[in-house]
Design a protein around this nucleic acid. Structure first.
Lengths: 331, 331
DNA sequence: GTGAAAGCGCTAACAT
DNA sequence: ATGTTAGCGCTTTCAC
């Protein structure tokens, strides 16, 4: 099957290619009978406009690049779904890029992003630092950052304020006299942990105390679970805070194997809630983070950056809220 | 910052654009001093070749479309990682499309895929049926299908044989006299369940028996768990087979709440293993499916389809194997 | 209302 | 070894 072009359609319909172009772009000025004539030719030939050629002519690709940390799909799934759902509405394509832990091939990613002339880029998580973003904005590419607050030219951000989240939560415990709180490190999500750490510090300070129980997982431990199993034999807390479900489950298993009971001896909360939290026994309390919305809103913001002439048409920063879901691991 | 083109570089380096083109494409024939002259100009101007224009001129986009079922990222994550890792090696971009449950907007997806002139498409799972694929192959687009065996022109497939997997597994139970096996429906993965069902049927038949315990989750139940809680109060089996971890955990919780013990009263196996299986108590046995490899191999096959002149350079079908991981939920 | 022609940025013969 | 030129498939003024 020969590649069929706008020119073939024009010949078939016996009009000029300009007219065909008008038809496929829904121009108003085409007379009804010639429109249908062209439509028929398109149908007959099975013609599909070449988006690449359109992209060249129009100087836009209607595709946006999405950058997520590799292997994060467990936690990014809903974000991507939200993103794609609204991308579909506005007829944008998503090209997916992943950043690799450690080895900073981010330059390569930026390079291919620029070459591919996407209309915008949406970045989840903190793998690309400010300098990287600077390179992109230098090339006039609008950016939306998911998860981190961020102020810069041509950059918008959509996020959940984890510091505030944990501040409010911890504050209640402290006020109740439960001041022995602990936060478990999460090597895969340093940026989130940093926010949580700051929120906790502030909560303690504002109550005239100091937060000290940031529990780092020693490097030699292959998994959090291995370490925690030892840890909870020796230590206890009023409340243990984890970021991800798998860490919460590790705590849960470790604590129970140490002969202690949740929530009676120790309470447990997982910031990033998931369905697995409610499958654990006891069920683990957590915060419903609006992942889908994070994606959907980000894409929506992107479309606004792309279409609105003035910068006042959209918010540079969008904070999304969360819902606390108490279950059986907290009192 | 004005869009800078190959022409600007040519002027800056005082050569023709053909020479610049040769340099950026690593042609051997360019003299060393002019090459460096051009390099400098490229550097100075911050020039990045426009992949869209290249795509138009070369009639290829070096991007391939990936189609996955919406909301499947929990299970698709590793596949995508594998895919992207080898895509990076060959400098291919991935544009991501999701099929929606029920409402068959697959036509739209196919439409945009064709318009975008991707070099190939990789499809995970069975949301696009044979007719859909036919449309794509009509437009000369090479296809790799992940997860389903498939024979057709210009289509390759990479898969795990679930029917064989469960056949072998069930056969051992039957031979041991444990013939009361049950398979739990999974609405989200009808194609996998179908394969499992067939494997079980055959295993029973080959042993002169009939497989009957395909347990469907009634539509009125919001979740499998709700139904199973009732179910296991009334029924028991020698072995219960689920496809996903969350269903296995639902069985585990239901059975335990019914006062029965795993694995003593009832054994449990989850076909698609995950880290959550080993976090459950008792830990759930499962099959390590090579998800990462499914993605990586698929992309590799795609590159072969794209580059090899003859069809003998690659296998039309690639079967990947699995590893059984016995844990505490089976004897 | 429709057509002719220039241009989007690049590649690849073909010349020199 | 380097330059010239004709496309790649489409959009969009500008004429008619």
């Amino acid at each position: 099957m020969k590649r069929i072009t706008i020119y073939d359609v024009a010949k078939e319909a016996d009009v000029s290619l300009a007219t065909v172009s008008r038809v496929i772009n829904g121009s108003e000025v085409v007379r009804e009978d010639t429109r249908s004539k062209v439509q028929e030719a398109i149908e007959k030939l099975g013609y599909k406009p070449n988006a690449i050629a359109q992209g060249l002519a129009l100087q836009k690709t209607t595709t946006i690049a999405l950058v997520v940390p590799e292997a994060s799909f467990y936690y990014t799934g809903q974000i991507i779904n939200g993103l794609i759902d609204v991308a579909k509405i506005y007829n944008y394509n998503i090209v997916l890029h992943t950043t690799t832990e450690g080895i900073s091939k981010t330059n390569d990613i930026i390079e291919t992003i620029i070459k591919s002339r996407v209309d915008g880029v949406i970045i989840f998580n903190d793998k690309l630092d400010k300098d990287d973003l600077k390179v992109l904005t230098n090339y006039q590419v609008p950016i939306v950052v998911i998860g981190n607050q961020m102020i810069a030219d041509n950059i918008c951000s959509v996020y959940v304020d984890y510091a505030k989240l944990i501040y409010d939560y911890a504050d209640k415990y402290i006020k109740k006299g439960k001041t022995n709180l602990a936060l478990i490190e999460d090597r895969k999500n340093p940026a989130m942990i940093k926010q949580l750490n700051e929120g906790l510090k502030k909560a303690f300070e504002d109550n005239g105390l100091t937060f000290t129980n940031y529990i780092e997982i020693p490097k030699e431990y292959r998994s959090s679970y291995m370490f925690l199993k030892d840890y909870f034999k020796m230590f206890s807390h009023d409340l243990v805070i984890t970021y991800r479900d798998s860490q919460a489950m590790a705590v849960l298993n470790s604590v129970q194997e140490a002969g202690k009971s949740i929530p009676d001896d120790l309470e447990l909360v997982c910031v990033l809630d998931s369905k697995y939290n409610s499958m654990a026994r006891p069920q683990i309390s957590g915060f419903k983070i609006p992942d889908y919305d994070l994606g959907a809103v980000s894409m929506r913001v992107m479309t606004k950056m792309l279409h609105e002439e003035n910068e006042d048409g959209y918010n540079r920063e969008t904070e999304l809220s969360y819902i606390y879901t108490p279950r059986k691991s907290t009192i």
